[in-house]
Design a protein around this nucleic acid. Sequence first.
DNA 1: TTTTTCAAGTAACAAATGTTACAAACACAC
DNA 2: GTGTGTTTGTAACATTTGTTACTTGAAAAA
Lengths: 210, 210
Amino acid sequence: MLEGLQRNYGYLFEDDLLKEISEIGTYKKVPEGFIVIDIGEQIKSIPLILSGAIKVMREDEEGNDLILYFVEQGDTCAMTITCCMGETKSEIRAVAETDTRIIMIPIQKMQEWMHKYKSWQSFILQSYHERMKELLEAIDTVAFLKMDERLYKYLRDKAMVNRDDLIKTTHQEIAQDLHTSRVVVSRLLKKLENENKIKLHRNSIKIIDL
Amino acid sequence: MLEGLQRNYGYLFEDDLLKEISEIGTYKKVPEGFIVIDIGEQIKSIPLILSGAIKVMREDEEGNDLILYFVEQGDTCAMTITCCMGETKSEIRAVAETDTRIIMIPIQKMQEWMHKYKSWQSFILQSYHERMKELLEAIDTVAFLKMDERLYKYLRDKAMVNRDDLIKTTHQEIAQDLHTSRVVVSRLLKKLENENKIKLHRNSIKIIDL
DNA sequence: TTTTTCAAGTAACAAATGTTACAAACACAC
DNA sequence: GTGTGTTTGTAACATTTGTTACTTGAAAAA
């Protein structure tokens, strides 16, 4: 765990803080698809990502899904912070995009360190800022882009966080993330293939010129 | 200015803080349509709303607009806070929805008071939290609602912040806020009128059963 | 190998939204 | 009053997205 911490956060946090994190945080290894935080859940700790990536999703009352953004290693899920500051329940779902290693920090410590470590404070504020920007980008995406553009952006983002231009997924799964239907996804993927932007295979999609 | 402060923030802030606000803040009276903060602008102060309301908008590179939410009296524009904490430029535009009275607080004071006044700190954090939720609601709206539902929600929200069930606007203006075309708005408004949810007039719309 | 199951392709159609064009209604200035 | 500009209504059509139904093809299981 310490080496993962060092690699991702060593340049951010001072040694004292790194030591405290490794002593207090609980290391967790979660498999792809694992729900790290679910909607309505009371937040008791916030996650620092050591490796892998997390997909942040929104769901409305009728069970409609929508991906908001991906969070990568070296990041935290800032939406969580908002929630535990306001002492309310999670508004989002966080799902492991790949096998992911995280450290969970109890919220009391999070607050304590805000005063104790300048670097922690700026990390938290910075994360906040990042996440706010990601939310705005999510709004831009659904509001201003057409479905084929959203799809292409989604594929590229997914390839980025997985560090692999071969995306292993099904059209059905993509449809769920983008809140559309499987047929629409298949249709637009075919169109993207004809435009030489991707190459389709069974259970996988290859991005050309990532 | 002091009575406006008392009325809206009296129950929130202690007297010392209210006094500091009235001494340091600059009182501003802005007319309907006035751009309080624009996209790309460097934020040097944050606004507290005494009366009236502010419309928060997003704009993409091509100049497409979209309303995010309204902010009412007794509130601040928390997006601004994010920006000045990260020392970056505004990602949003804030436009006076009606004639509005605000107090501008320089960001240095904002930071200072975070440590000095507990009530100020919780106000800022609370605002943050509120705004994050509003952003999520904005996402739900564009992602999950159809245009007629969005339109109806928009009209109701607008009536609420203006405290008037008669909305003075044109179809063209609505179309811009919702990022659609005037013809679509006219069509759907007609449909809402047939469903007895609104009554249409020239330059105004009356909401039935607000 | 054969069977079964799941993913993907595709056609045909429906609904929602966007676009263009023009007419009617109204408000205001003259 | 008349003319002028703006707002609204509406038709006709295009495009995008969603839905249903069925086929094809590939992998996994038997």
